[in-house]
Amino acid sequence: MLKFTEEHEWLLVEGDVATVGITAHASEQLGDLVFVELPEEGATFAKGAAAATVESVKAASEVYCPLDGEIVEVNQAIVDDPSLVGSDPEGAAWFFKLKLANPADAAALLDKAAYEALIA
């Protein structure tokens, strides 16, 4: 199940684990990224809490945790090469995997059509 947030994150929900990244639209708005800071594995976040930081040449932006959960894996590849986020934001440049506290909550997030309407 692919879901989106109004804060421009995408989530691929498989069972009780969601793979989270930022959308192509967000990546385009941010421009070239030069720094990515990811959360620690094992950290827990409430929905809406700042979980990661991305920085372009000009500015820092937060990436918010889309649902309550625990970080079970992070993508070191985007820390090593932040430009990956620009080249493949909705694929190889995922940020972290989140074990959802309440998997059913994912249903209430935006679907692809609703997200595309949001950014249109």
Binding site: G31, D32, V34, S56, V57, K58
Partner: peptide, 10 residues
């Protein structure tokens, strides 16, 4: 203009 299509880095 803050940037053109090439982007700030380029």
């Amino acid at each position: 203009p803050v940037q053109y299509p090439a982007g700030v880095l380029k």
